[in-house]
Each structure stands twice: as structure tokens, then as C-alpha cells.
């Protein structure tokens, strides 16, 4: 008799596929929130599996801050062509132009928080009732309490103390007009699981994740990439280093690590030996102890 149990990656994959199919069955108008980062690439790959031999039956949505790595945008467009899905873009620049949000000032200014308004506007104007995200519970302590199906009120807000209980595999996506859900199919994956799976499935990811030469500036203990948006202080110096990024956010806030890892195997080995969390280099999370929880309550990813 063959073994009748799954290994951990197959079980995580099957769970994620199950969640994606539940979303499709329970909602009218879902989208995948696509950032070009590895987690949203993984969710897209899992969606391909969930609906094969049909195509992914819903669009991808990108909240474009305008502060992108050029590689990310190219990658996004390639993937859209590959899967033949529709792309919805919510533009932070447009939100600024329309006066919906005000740009932060100073050297540490980011468009991170501004995304919330753009995201919620895009959800509302496209009548989206479920936005599927690549959030993982191991990323941050506020995310450890996130549900697979996470309710948002008609202001797009998350109420962590009043979440619907989720038992067994029974998910309740019922909602009133104007409310929406966030769904997190890879909730139970860790950073290591994601890399092991990407390696196993040989999933294409942006070149930014691999070690490469880049102009960078040392700031707050990490290497911030040089870009047209970066405001240099007098004492700061642009140098060229071989680095790679563990996560991809805006080019203005995503720090890289010095690395020689230029293959998926080397990345997996490197991640296995890492002694810091992946969001440790994200200045958006360093602002306060509850920075993530506060943003999530307002409607962040």
C-alpha cells in the first residue's frame, strides 16, 4: 500500500486551493491583490492550480504607489499575459492628484499608508467583495490572529476583537452590501515554506530576490536602493553592493541584505540560516510596536 498522507507542503497547497475555491464559490466579484512580491506570486500560482483546466476566473489588482522597482512592473505585466487575466490598477498618484490623500514629507516619507485609501477606493469603485491577499500569520503579531476569511465593514475596517470564529474547514463569507472580505489562502505558510515551495515548483519570481549588484545607501541598519525618490542626507554615500531583497515593497522603504544567493537553492539555504524576521528591514513596520495592527484596522493589506 502506498502512503496515504501528504507532506507538509502538499497539505499547505491543498488547503490554499480549498480556500481559493471557497472564495470563488462564495463571492460575486473577488480579486487577487497582486504586489509583484513573492507571496502574491505564490497565491497566483495556487489559483492557477485551483481552477485548472479553467483559467483563473477573476482579475488581479495592483495598488500602484508609483514608487516601484521597475523590475516589479515588468514582472507583473508578464504574469498577466501568461495567465490571461484582467489587471485592475489602483493608483496612489491619482489619489494624490485628486486630493484624496496628502503626500508625506521629509527623508523618511513613504507612500505606504497612502495605499490604504487607494486600495479601499479601488475596492469600492470596482464593486469587489473579496480581495485575496498573500498575508501570512507568521509575518507579524497582529497577523497571527487573522482569519482565512476576514471581514471588513463598509469603511473597510478590521475589528480584531470581533472576528468571526472559523472552525474546521467551514468558512462564512456572508456579507452585506458595501462590506467586503479579505481572504488569506497562505495564512499557515512561513517564509521558509514559501521558499521551499517556490523552489520545488520552480515558480518564476522577480530578479530582485536574487543577489545582484545595485547602488545602495546605508540607512537604519539596512541597504536602501538608490532611486529617483531617495533624498540623500549629507553624510550618506551611494555605494555599489551585491545585495538581494527578502521582501518587496516600495523602492523607498525596502532594504536589501548583502548576499551571494543567486539561485533558489542558495536563497532557501540562506533563509534557513537567517536570524532576523523578514519584515525587520521594512521601515513601515518599525514605526511602533503596533504599527501593523493600527494599519490593518484601517484597511491595510
Amino acid at each position: 500500500m502506498s502512503k496515504y498522507y501528504l507532506n507538509y507542503l502538499d497539505e499547505l497547497e491543498s488547503e490554499a486551493i480549498y480556500i481559493l475555491r471557497e472564495v470563488w464559490a462564495q463571492f460575486e466579484n473577488p480579486v487577487i491583490l497582486f504586489s509583484g512580491g513573492k507571496d502574491s506570486i505564490l497565491v497566483t500560482h495556487l489559483a492557477k492550480k485551483a481552477f485548472y483546466p479553467a483559467k483563473i476566473p477573476f482579475p488581479l489588482m495592483h495598488v500602484d504607489t508609483g514608487h516601484n522597482f521597475p523590475e516589479t512592473i515588468q514582472f507583473r505585466d508578464d504574469i498577466i499575459e501568461d495567465i490571461g487575466a484582467q489587471l485592475i490598477v489602483g493608483s496612489v498618484q491619482e489619489s494624490i492628484n485628486e486630493g484624496r490623500v496628502t503626500e508625506e514629507k521629509g527623508k523618511n516619507a513613504t507612500r505606504n499608508a497612502l495605499q490604504i485609501t487607494t486600495l479601499l477606493d479601488a475596492i469600492e469603485s470596482n464593486k469587489i467583495d473579496c480581495a485575496i491577499g498573500g498575508g501570512r500569520r507568521d509575518e507579524e503579531k497582529a497577523r497571527a490572529k487573522e482569519r482565512f476569511f476576514s471581514h471588513r465593514d463598509d469603511f473597510g475596517q478590521w475589528d480584531p476583537k470581533n472576528q468571526r470564529p472559523e472552525l474546521w474547514n467551514l468558512f462564512n463569507g456572508k456579507h452585506f452590501e458595501g462590506e467586503h472580505f479579505r481572504a488569506f489562502p497562505i495564512s499557515n505558510w512561513t517564509e521558509m515554506d514559501v521558499w521551499n515551495y517556490i523552489k520545488r515548483e520552480n515558480i518564476a519570481i522577480p530578479s530582485l530576490y536574487f543577489a545582484h549588484e545595485r547602488e545602495v545607501v546605508r540607512r537604519d541598519g539596512t541597504w536602501i536602493p538608490n532611486s529617483e525618490f531617495l533624498i540623500l542626507e549629507d553624510h550618506e554615500e551611494v555605494v555599489t553592493k551585491k545585495i538581494r531583497f527578502r521582501t518587496l515593497g516600495d523602492i523607498t522603504i525596502t532594504g536589501g541584505d548583502e548576499s551571494e544567493a543567486d539561485t533558489l537553492q542558495k536563497i532557501a539555504d540562506e533563509v534557513a540560516g537567517m536570524r532576523n524576521t523578514e519584515r525587520g528591514n521594512r521601515s513601515d513596520d518599525k514605526r511602533s510596536e503596533s504599527a501593523m495592527e493600527d494599519r490593518k484596522r484601517q484597511g491595510y493589506f
Binding site: 500569520r137 507568521d138 503579531k141 497582529a142 497571527a144 490572529k145 480584531p160 476583537k161 472576528q163 495564512s187 499557515n188 512561513t190 510596536e289 503596533s290 495592527e293
Partner: peptide, 18 residues
């Protein structure tokens, strides 16, 4: 976990860890 839990020193909700 959550802000309220830190303040009160108790677990209110289910938290998942890996």
C-alpha cells in the same frame, strides 16, 4: 498579540504560531 492583550496580559483570541 494584539494591543489590548499586551495591555491586559491575557490571550483573548486564538493566535496561530509556527
Amino acid at each position: 498579540g494584539l494591543k489590548d492583550e499586551r495591555e491586559q496580559g491575557i490571550t483573548i483570541d486564538v493566535a496561530y504560531r509556527y
